[in-house]
């Protein structure tokens, strides 16, 4: 029940590459993927979701190679939330969330009771009940972001791969989203989420992968990885890191070369 990266590398053009990445996503954990722009966060998530193929190394999903599982099974096991969150047609919120059930549905078949249950649960979790029958274009940006998450939740996948899902959400909805991911992990699922909000990552993730320039520079518990020095080295920022009763609190003060 794991999603593994074994010595995975990837190169795109001349400028960008990932080198020899290895890590394992265990059941029951919410892992935060942090690092500056261009570090390779989105690429890692896309590879795990089966959208792009690594140029070297293996991805192992539940002891199987994704090629042997087929796209449908991969879709049942991994739900991916892309960074680009656009709806191309103005369908209703409910229809959109129902798309999450596509990997389970027979061609031309309707929704089964199981599907309806999953959809209702996702609507509930993302606080969308009041909007369920509205066209998605009627919703605010934050509400639309929640619709996307609800679609991924409806997919009922063990592994949730989310690319900056909190962008554009108000603090309350950011927290309820992260809480939802934590809940998912607690019930035996796994979450890999890329975040720019270091505070969110510190508070809600069990483990942090710190990425820089296509490499994992550090991996471990938040208080071990997200130190003043590491953040200064990778991001080039001055940050205040303090331990409180609510967990680790990180506040950015300025750029490291300001001083």
């Amino acid at each position: 029940m794991t999603l593994e990266f074994n010595n995975v590398s990837f190169s795109y053009g001349a400028g960008f590459s990932l080198h020899d990445l290895s890590f394992c996503l265990q059941p029951g954990e919410c892992v935060g993927l942090i690092g500056p722009n261009g570090a390779g966060k989105s690429t890692i998530l896309k590879m795990l979701a089966g959208i792009i193929k690594p140029s070297g190394g293996d991805i192992v999903l539940d002891d199987m190679k994704p090629e042997d599982l087929g796209p449908r099974v991969i879709a049942q096991k991994t739900a991916y939330l892309p960074q680009q969150r656009r709806f191309h047609w103005d369908i209703s919120v409910r229809s959109l969330i129902e798309l999450g059930r596509l990997p389970y549905r027979r061609r031309f078949g309707g929704l089964l009771p199981d599907d309806h249950r999953a959809v209702e649960r996702a609507i509930e979790l993302m606080d969308l009940k009041a909007h369920a029958n509205r066209p998605v274009s009627n919703l605010s940006g934050g509400e639309q972001a929640r619709v996307h998450v609800a679609r991924a939740l409806a997919q009922d996948a063990k592994f949730i791969l989310a690319d900056e899902p909190t962008a554009g959400l108000d603090p309350a909805h950011q927290i309820s989203l992260m809480r939802c991911f934590a809940e998912h992990a607690k019930t035996g699922g796994s979450v890999l989420v890329s975040l720019h909000d270091l505070g969110m990552a510190a508070r809600w993730c069990d483990r942090i992968l710190l990425l820089d320039n296509g490499r994992i520079v550090m991996e471990g518990a938040p208080d071990m990885v997200m130190t003043r020095d590491n953040l200064a080295r990778v991001y080039g920022i001055r940050a205040h890191v303090s331990r409180t009763e609510d967990g680790l609190v990180i506040a950015t003060a300025g750029l490291s070369n300001d001083a």
């Binding site: 796209p71 892309p82 679609r151």
Partner: peptide, 14 residues
């Protein structure tokens, strides 16, 4: 239907 979510979204839906 799946392409409503864009290419990546559709691919992730299998």
């Amino acid at each position: 239907d799946a392409l409503t979510l864009g290419e990546y979204g559709a691919q992730n839906l299998g």
